[in-house]
Nucleic acid binder design. Structure first.
Length: 287
DNA sequence: GCCCAGGGAATCG
DNA sequence: CGATTCCATGGG
């Protein structure tokens, strides 16, 4: 990877496995807006950032070298060797197909609190609606930054009442959000400490929250806590797994988890993202 | 009107 | 344990 700084921009001139559309639209994050083809604005890490990509470079702005190195290299997982990961996963012909379909996917390192609340909202919901609810919450409780609102901090969001949250269209999930906040506030769960735990230990912590089950916990582990061995299994992943690996017979989540762990080990999370994007884009397994 | 969505809790047996 | 039902909300 190579990049240069020029008037409030970082221009990345050498890179591999980076496609901003695929990275943002593979379902791992929700706070982005499409400005144009291969031009997006994201809100993360208390900043509003443009990412604009063409055939030879990726521009990040407004951004200086310091911010890029301290924040965005980690956020975009730019020090991970995806060519190596893909080479290992390509032994499997189905994952190989999914990788070729979207070879520029990367797993972001998001902020745990926002990620947790976002995936609580995601349950039994649709992606456009999830984005809208998170935007509503940000506008109500977060700080304005330019034309956008930052996702609220714990201290900002803990003032929320069930009635207010329902106005943000959280539906039945209002009490789940409040339970998550309470668990963090009274230090039953310390999100920062989850980094240092094994995936299993961290998962058991997250499962204490009402409204957090296997799938939501796995998403938080994979998308914000660097636990790459987990395999979040939603309806799409279940469908694609049944379609390709289980001969469409009725399976359960545990079977799929065991299968993924055995087949992909510590790279299961990456395999999951390639498969999810492929399945959802091509509507694999529906009908 | 009916069905379902990046699920999980509550309640049964 | 596993299976069923309900949960708000909105789009197809």
């Amino acid at each position: 990877m190579k990049y240069i700084e020029e008037n409030e921009k970082i221009v990345m001139t050498e890179f591999e496995s980076f496609n901003i559309k695929e990275i943002l639209e593979c379902g791992q994050c929700f706070r982005f807006e499409k400005i144009d083809e291969m031009h997006y604005i994201i809100v993360a890490n208390n900043k509003v950032l443009n990412i604009k990509q063409d055939s030879e470079k990726v521009e990040f702005y407004p951004c200086n070298k310091n911010e890029f190195e301290n924040i965005w290299i980690n956020y975009f997982d730019l020090e991970t060797d995806y060519n190596k990961i893909k080479k290992q996963l390509e032994d499997d012909p189905i994952v190989k197909t999914a990788i070729e379909y979207a070879s520029g996917i990367r797993i972001l390192n998001q902020e745990p609190f926002e990620c947790l609340i976002s995936f609580i909202i995601s349950q039994n919901n649709r992606i456009p609606m999830i984005k809208q609810v998170i935007k509503n919450i940000s506008e109500k409780y977060g700080v304005k930054e330019g034309e956008y609102y930052l996702f609220p901090t714990l201290n900002q969001l803990k003032k929320a009442t069930p009635e207010e949250l329902k106005l943000c269209k959280t539906g039945f999930r209002d009490k789940y959000i409040l339970d998550a906040i309470q668990n963090i506030e009274n230090n039953t769960i310390n999100l920062e400490q989850l980094y240092n735990m094994t995936a299993e230990e961290a998962k058991n912590q997250l499962l204490k929250i009402k409204g957090v089950g296997t799938k939501v916990a796995d998403c938080v582990l994979l998308f914000s806590l660097k636990k790459n061995e987990v395999f979040p299994t939603d309806v799409w992943v279940k469908r694609v797994m049944e379609h390709f690996y289980f001969d469409e017979k009725d399976t359960n989540i545990k079977e799929i988890h065991n299968f993924a762990k055995e087949k992909w080990g510590d790279l299961a999370g990456y395999a999951q993202q390639y498969l999810f994007y492929y399945a959802r884009s091509e509507k694999i397994g529906t009908k």
